[in-house]
């Protein structure tokens, strides 16, 4: 039997644009994955705490405010500190092309921008799980 894949969908930062996060959450659930959605306005510390508590296979971060250059690396740093960096981390939202490489350097495995199909994300998760 296929392993049950556990995901946390999190919204760091202050922006309230949760349409994408909610659509992705539901899409992953409909694809048979287990999904926890943290809700809005999560600080990096909140998100890392959720990861430590829930021990997911995947962490999906959605942000549309432009605060990703600060918040994404901060989350990755804290995950490492907590020894929780074996989780696959994906990012989505309005992330300019020139920032994508920097986010990957920080440890985000892939960035999915506007126009991504849910199935592409599901496929990516299934082929890139870290454990």
């Amino acid at each position: 039997m296929e392993k049950n894949i556990r995901c946390i969908v999190a919204k760091p930062g202050l922006d309230g644009h949760d349409r994408g996060a909610k659509v992705i959450s539901r899409g992953l659930r409909d694809a048979g994955l287990e999904v926890i959605y943290t809700g809005l306005h999560q600080t990096p510390a909140d998100i890392v705490e959720s990861v430590v508590q829930e021990d997911p296979d995947v962490l999906l971060l959605s942000i549309l405010s432009g605060a990703h250059p600060i918040l994404f690396p901060e989350i990755m740093k804290k995950l490492k500190e907590e020894g929780a960096d074996d989780v696959l981390v994906l990012g989505g939202g309005i992330i300019p092309d020139e920032d994508v490489a920097k986010m990957k350097e920080a440890g985000i495995s892939e960035i999915f921008g506007p126009g991504t199909k849910i199935q592409e994300i599901v496929d990516y998760i299934k082929t890139h799980l870290k454990r």
Binding site: L14, D15, G66, A67, I70, L71, E74
Partner: peptide, 11 residues
């Protein structure tokens, strides 16, 4: 505020 980290002047 720490809540404003990364957000100042962005949106």
């Amino acid at each position: 505020s720490p809540m404003s980290a990364g957000e100042v002047g962005k949106e």
